Amino acid sequence: MSEVYTDENIVAPDYEKKMIRCENLVKIYKTDEIEVVALQGLDLDVECGELMAIVGNSGSGKSTLLNMLGGLDKPSAGSLFVDGRNLLKFTDKDYMEYKRNTVGFVWQNNARNLVPYLTAVQNVELPMLLKSQRRRRERALELLEKVGLSHRKNSRLDQMSGGEQQRVAIAIALANNPRLLLADEPTGSVDTKTSNVILDIFKELNRTEKITVVIVTHDVKLARHIDRVVAIRDGRTSSEIVRKRSYVEELNELGDIVRVEDEGGDIHEELVVLDRSGRLQLPKDYMETLEIRGGDKVKVELDEEDKRIYLFKSG
């Protein structure tokens, strides 16, 4: 169980069950002449040991959220708990300890992950030097094996492909045994085949190491590979794309006599997320179909018998 802090960092009991809990999270960037609201009341829960993705277009707020989860930026308001700790109460010392011990980060840009003149195994050893860990070489070799790169342990950056570099970056992020692994567009600079290999590594690490994995990307096709994908739009949680329980799975759970193969098809559905005040964001394609724009007035009707809500364009 994660450490629970008292006094000003006190954590409610139900927070212990979540790796991440954001409530009405706000981030505002200010300069002398302009104020930009990057997150405006975002709500998000991530279970311990979950693998999930966050998607959104440029400017949606997903990178801002990732930076705050990684301890690289501070929230302006709201609530943000990670592993039972309240990040809004963190001192600079708390943030340093958090980044060293709780969270691992994989960047899209390999230049931020790797030191080019070091070998793969030396790169993986580097974070362990900060904690004076023993068995550094043994641990580094174990991690390279987990990402399928034992044969590249003595290779430098310029001797590896982009996909191999990214796998070394994953091993580096795991060097200090974090409970939360964050990945920023980890498949953004590789081809589809390599992308699938990297995603399979995340899934295997999530399964075997029980580590919580959050992948941030602009690619909604990740929904085909991950059970839960949260979409962010305009600084708020817009919808969730979740894996449906298929008929094939239900048949297979009835017994081990006959196993039925899934023939594919659409196994995900998109669910609109209500915030804690009951507000929601309509999917963009719905708004385009109804010819609704932001600021337009719409009529909402409730069918109490069928328990359905109907939306009509006013006028």
Rank of each mutant, 00 (worst) to 15 (best):
R233S: 12
N252H: 06
E253L: 14
V82Y: 03
L282C: 04
T91C: 11
N196H: 07
Y95G: 02
T217H: 02
L118Q: 13
K93D: 12
A12C: 02
D262T: 14
Q166D: 05
K89E: 11
W107F: 13
D234A: 12
E185N: 10
R179E: 14
V168L: 07
V147S: 04
L144A: 06
E35I: 09
L205D: 08
L143K: 03
D306K: 15
V55C: 03
L222P: 05
M287C: 15
Y98A: 05
D14L: 07
E209P: 04
T6N: 13
I267V: 12
T208H: 13
V115M: 15
I211Q: 02
E269S: 13
L311A: 05
E261V: 13
I232T: 05
R236H: 02
S189W: 04
N196P: 02
V214W: 00
I309F: 09
E204K: 15
D262P: 01
G70H: 07
E23Q: 08
L222T: 00
N101F: 08
N252Q: 11
Y15F: 09
L181E: 01
I170F: 09
P13H: 04
Y286C: 10
K284R: 14
S76E: 03
L80F: 02
I198K: 05
L130F: 14
R167S: 09
N252K: 10
R224A: 14
I215K: 01
A173S: 08
N9T: 09
I309Y: 10
N24Q: 10
R85M: 11
D184S: 11
V106L: 11
A223W: 00
K131E: 14
Q165K: 12
D200P: 07
E145K: 13
M52Y: 02
H151A: 10
L87G: 05
N110Y: 10
R136Q: 06
D303L: 09
L39P: 06
E253F: 00
L174P: 04
N9F: 02
V4I: 14
D227M: 07
N9D: 12
E125C: 10
S189K: 12
R179V: 07
V213N: 01
V229C: 05
I226P: 02
N67I: 04
D296G: 06
K27E: 04
H218C: 01
Q133K: 15
A169H: 01
K74N: 08
I170W: 00
V248T: 15
S79Q: 12
D45E: 11
K93G: 11
D73T: 09
R100K: 14
L157M: 15
L174H: 06
Y98F: 14
V147N: 07
V115H: 09
A171V: 03
T64C: 05
E261S: 15
I267E: 14
S132E: 15
F312C: 03
K17W: 03
N154K: 13
D7H: 08
T31W: 01
V37S: 04
R139V: 03
E97K: 15
P116M: 08
R152Y: 10
I20F: 01
D285V: 12
G84Y: 03
F81P: 04
E270F: 02
Y15R: 10
G84P: 02
D32Q: 07
C48Q: 14
N196T: 10
M287H: 00
R293N: 13
L182E: 08
V11F: 01
V214R: 10
I170N: 02
T208S: 14
T194A: 11
V121P: 05
